[in-house]
Design a protein around this nucleic acid. Structure first.
Lengths: 208, 208
DNA sequence: TCCATACTTCGATGATAGACGAAATGATTT
DNA sequence: AAATCATTTCGTCTATCATCGAAGTATGGA
């Protein structure tokens, strides 16, 4: 259930139960433990309870556990189509990850939109202009409580992708533009034809 | 026991049992599970069995779990003298962490010895010269299988310190120079008088 | 008003984890 | 050779976990 929540989408108890292949009663018991353990939050909306990871640190911890879990334990995932698409591109809590995510991070850096200093990313003047043209209100993004840009280690690529407030804003905007589509029931994504053009034109990225 | 192993020092079953306040029988059972789960390795030396974390990824995962564990669970540690010294300076598997570790990372960056790009650190020409003068054979360090520089998120400072092959080489050299002393039974370190001078002279760091 | 749906609570069951005493194994010291 | 020490193996006990059926409580729709 925690892995399922990694993409940041709030999910209901029943959805999570189906994903974990357990009954709603069992899921309910586990979820309430996770809530009281401060790993996830519960939001009541009508008869639905939406659960989500409490913060990106939890996502990070889960990813780092996946990264060290032995191949045999994830073999069912590793061998599956599902994992193939996860490696290509996926969302990580609330930003892009996988090959697409790390390549995008690299492109943003190569184009001089972001630069890194002491392990942190900073937006350049050049980048400020780019993101604004791209339809992201940087001033607004900066106002958010969380870290502006967070380098998030990717478990499949073993190199960082862009997390933090900017990563979330970027994912939102890319989704809004129709460049990617989320797949049902997991956190893999599909790049649309529109998206392939966009990634190439804006970031010099060739997506297969 | 895993937390105790975080400093990278190999430890015997009995030491780990004492640290965890369990009997050697119990420790043995847990350790063998950790070995077969590929989290730690066992090295036989006479009648002693030395255990250590299998690789830095495991250390990283443990640190990220500590980072999200609720304060109430670490309160006994948080309130203790032990934790105070851990916060000041400690080793994280095989490199420096804590306040000293993060400040050193910042200093290396400020002095232009390392620069960061897309969330990764790179050594500058300036840095190459510095580390060579400092007594570290960079060519040799680069040959090692692991990542050259790995930004490792620090649980107490919430900002990165220098991990990877260079982080390990740096800790080795600093230990060799007698700048720090490891404390018995935990991974806290003490900066020697020699070290205070050295950190100030070489990195502009004031250590208290 | 009645029923379906989403979720939780309660209670029971079987499996397992964590712990340790006792005893065995192997290495080191005396 | 005997004693000591580090560790493991075995057996056993207790507590806890994960699970689900049954029943209960909201919510939303017909």
């Amino acid at each position: 259930m925690l892995i399922s929540l990694l993409d940041g989408r709030p999910q209901t108890a029943t959805e999570l139960a189906r994903h974990a292949q357990i009954t709603p009663q069992t899921a309910s018991a586990h979820l309430s433990k996770l809530v009281s353990g401060n790993l996830i939050t519960k939001e009541v909306q009508g008869r639905y309870r939406y659960f989500r990871l409490i913060n990106p640190n939890v996502a990070h911890a889960i990813e780092s556990l996946i990264a060290i879990s032995s191949p045999s334990q994830v073999r069912s995932l590793r061998d599956s189509d599902e994992e193939q698409s996860l490696r290509k591109g996926r969302t990580c809590y609330d930003h892009l990850a996988g090959k697409l995510g790390t390549e995008l991070a690299k492109a943003l850096h190569d184009k001089g939109y972001i630069e890194s200093s002491a392990g942190d990313y900073n937006l350049t003047d050049h980048g400020l202009k780019f993101f604004t043209d791209f339809g992201i209100d940087i001033a607004k993004v900066r106002l958010r409580r969380r870290k502006f840009i967070h380098p998030c280690l990717d478990w499949s690529e073993r190199t960082p992708h862009i997390g933090g407030a900017l990563g979330a804003a970027l994912l939102d905007r890319i989704t809004e533009l129709g460049w990617i589509e989320k797949r049902p029931f997991n956190r893999a994504i599909r790049v649309t034809a529109e998206g392939k053009k966009g990634f190439h034109k804006n970031f010099n990225l060739l997506v297969d």
